[in-house]
């Protein structure tokens, strides 16, 4: 069961790191990346739960189906969030990626 343990703990750590980044960082893309890392962590724990070493019986297929579902959901939500964040950027006058007014970035570019 050591394998399950290792990957469960890894998944939990991924969840924690993602959570911290999601709250602390303010850039929209970073937040979305953090959510993705979090969800990968959750999936990892779930798959690790189902894991049975080779030759010791079948792997539980229900968590696999759940994770497949979850991956597709997370991709679609990621896409929506990305488009939404682009729109937020386009209507805001702060450069969300670099945390300064849009005008400054534009000046930097024209230089």
């Amino acid at each position: 069961m050591i394998t399950t343990q290792i990957y469960s703990i890894t998944g939990l750590l991924l969840f924690g790191m993602g959570l911290f980044t999601l709250i602390v960082h303010s850039h929209p893309l970073r937040k979305i990346l953090a959510v993705n890392v979090m969800s990968t962590g959750v999936f990892l724990i779930l798959i690790a739960t189902a894991y049975t070493p080779l030759g010791q019986g079948e792997v539980d297929p229900v968590p696999h189906a759940m994770v497949l579902t979850g991956i597709v959901v997370s991709v679609s939500v990621t896409a929506l969030a990305l488009i939404l964040s682009c729109r937020v950027q386009e209507t805001s006058n702060r450069d969300l990626l670099r945390e300064k007014p849009v005008a400054e970035t534009a000046k930097e570019c024209t230089r």
């Binding site: 069961m1 939990l12 229900v62």
Partner: peptide, 24 residues
């Protein structure tokens, strides 16, 4: 807070007896 939560959850997670339950 996050570190404490992760340690607590990790402790609980590794103490759940595994292997017997499931729908396989």
């Amino acid at each position: 807070l996050v570190i404490c939560m992760i340690i607590l959850l990790g402790y609980i997670l590794s103490n759940i007896p595994g292997g017997t339950l499931g729908l396989e």
